[in-house]
Amino acid sequence: MTKLALTLLVLAALPLSASDWSDTLIGYRTSSQFREPGIDGTLNKDILQLSHASGWAYGSNFFNVDMLMSDKNDPAANGKTGANEVYVAYRGALSFGKLSGKDLSFGPVRDISVTAGFDFNSKDNAFASKKRFLVFGPTFNLKAPSGFLDLGLWACHEQNQNGIVGKAVDYKTTYYISAAWGMPFELGGVGAEFKGFANYEGAKGKDGFGVDTKPETLANLFLMFDVSPVFGAKKKVYIGGGLEYWNNKFGVPNSDAPAPGTNKRVTAPMLQVQVHF
């Protein structure tokens, strides 16, 4: 799976400079209701985002970088400041319909692609996460009234580390169901968009503490409004609200036990601002 994924990543990334369309954004989102395993109570995070999506003759690319800055309730390893994290994700897709020159649509499906991608992160807390994550598999590009709606049925493999016990972790390969969408519309004459993603990852074996992992669900949903006319901005400026839902975060079973055994479900309302170029 690793060799196939890396090969597809190279092929998909080659035409980045010859895209038919592209959308690059700088964003900021925040909430005071985030949670982390092993920490009682909620915490605040400010998140800076750089994201790029583009399409070319035979596929598409998506690249995103988040810089997550926690308050003191999620302390850095030095115990004096809040932890900082960098999280990077890339997905490259090749369209079977475009490659073959045939119409592969049927029912709710307009095309089928093969997708490969990776995530990696680094965080400066005591756990010192260093996620290395690969995905590979088919994506069904579904018909939508506007915008896009994609459903991926992928295999995934993760390597990470547990800095608390000083142990590297090589998880089992498992399945990964991923939905992503962006649907623009007008509401009272104002441009708007319903956008987001939802991922469901199967259990991936034991974690660094020797605990069996559970299936994990992560979803981010946003309703964004185009406020560019208000500011007379030449670029598209969107403001809106959303929700992050995270069940069995990092595959750690949910628990209401006191720290360090706690891992409560995340339901964090968020505010977000995006500037598109």
Rank of each mutant, 00 (worst) to 15 (best):
L94M: 14
V237D: 00
M1K: 12
A13E: 08
G27H: 01
D119Y: 04
R110Y: 01
F136G: 00
G38Y: 00
M69V: 07
G92L: 04
Y175Q: 12
G59M: 10
L99A: 08
D111Y: 10
W154M: 14
G59E: 08
F96S: 04
T217D: 03
G191L: 08
Y171K: 10
A77N: 13
K234M: 06
A12E: 06
A144K: 10
V88T: 13
F106P: 02
E216I: 06
G241V: 06
T267N: 14
K214F: 03
T173S: 14
R91F: 11
R265D: 09
N160W: 02
I39Q: 04
R91W: 11
S228C: 10
V237W: 00
N44Y: 14
T7I: 09
G189E: 03
L218N: 04
D207F: 04
Y171R: 10
E244K: 09
K72P: 03
F136H: 07
D170E: 13
Y90F: 11
P258M: 04
D207N: 15
V266W: 00
V135H: 05
M1L: 13
L50G: 05
S129H: 07
T267Q: 08
A89C: 01
S255F: 08
G92W: 05
T24G: 03
F140R: 02
P75V: 07
R110L: 05
R110N: 08
E244V: 13
S95F: 05
V190E: 02
L4N: 07
F34R: 01
M224V: 02
S105F: 03
V65F: 10
T42W: 05
G191I: 03
N125D: 15
Y58L: 15
K206V: 12
E201G: 09
Q159I: 07
T2R: 13
F140K: 02
N263M: 01
A192C: 11
L43G: 06
L99F: 09
S178K: 13
S32D: 15
D20R: 13
R132M: 13
V190F: 12
S95Y: 05
A198C: 08
G152P: 02
D66K: 07
G117P: 01
S60K: 11
